[in-house]
């Protein structure tokens, strides 16, 4: 018997789940806090939600593995999730599995999107008019990505595919028009498939050997602004 706890804080949601031998025991997804500008509730919801989920499954001591979404996504959210995952795994003495947030989203699209055998395109809103995207076809292995691109660039890549993909995620909703022009099909906005589900973090994280907690790092895909400005300035001065 193997108990896996999985969570993701790369998007505005705080997603948490507990799985035992591939069977989902509990799953939760808390949206941003009401008021206060809708700041994600990662810091205040993640551990309480995990504790509730783990409590129902036999307590922290019963946990065999921790799986955490490593992005791409919100920088602060990723750090909250990964710092939590590393500390939990270290304190419990169990392996930590870092799972691509886009791979988890793609898995949800494939399993619950109703797209038949079509490729699954996971697209998150990266702000600043760009998206984070990755494509999976039939397995959890990613065919492309993760990468950051403009919706127009992504639409061109979609148009070049043999089969049109089923796309979902906050970025697919935000740039629905552009991506549909490229040939992507996108489920209705209310469909749960657009949100990262922690059961998919658990399912992917349960595979493979897991890592030393210290080796799990975020996938930012972008440098800090200060770094980019500095590089731009030094290029201008050349």
């Amino acid at each position: 018997m193997a108990l896996v706890i999985g969570f993701d804080t790369a998007t505005d949601d705080t997603a948490a789940a507990v799985m035992c031998d591939g069977e989902l025991l509990t799953e939760s997804a808390a949206g941003p806090t009401a008021g206060g500008g809708g700041r994600p509730a990662h810091a205040t919801r993640l551990l309480p939600d995990l504790e509730a989920a783990v409590g129902a499954a036999g307590g922290w001591e019963a946990v065999d593995r921790v799986a955490v979404g490593i992005g791409p996504g919100s920088f602060t959210g990723l750090r909250i999730g990964i710092a939590t995952g590393r500390a939990l795994a270290q304190a419990l003495g169990v392996p930590l599995a870092g799972v691509s947030t886009l791979a988890a989203l793609a898995r949800g699209i494939r399993e619950r999107g109703g797209g038949g055998g079509r490729p699954a395109l996971a697209v998150l809103d990266a702000r600043r008019g760009e998206v984070f995207a990755a494509l999976a076809d039939g397995t959890d292995e990613l065919l492309w990505g993760p990468f950051v691109a403009t919706p127009a660039e992504l639409a061109r890549r979609i148009a070049a595919l043999d089969r049109p993909p089923l796309a979902a995620g906050s970025g697919a909703l935000r740039f629905r028009g552009e991506l549909q022009q490229g040939g992507a099909e996108i489920p209705a906005g209310a469909d749960r498939v657009h949100r990262v589900a922690a059961r998919d973090i658990c399912a992917i994280g349960a595979l493979g050997p897991g890592s030393d907690p210290r080796d799990v790092a975020p996938v930012y895909l972008r440098k800090p602004d200060a770094e980019r400005w500095r590089e731009r300035d030094s290029t201008d001065n050349r």
Partner: peptide, 20 residues
């Protein structure tokens, strides 16, 4: 700095929680 503090707070909370 809020983002900096959150790294320490998240780590400390999880270390403490796992061992109650």
């Amino acid at each position: 700095l809020i983002g900096a503090l959150l790294v320490g707070v998240s780590s400390a909370k999880a270390l403490a929680a796992a061992r109650r």
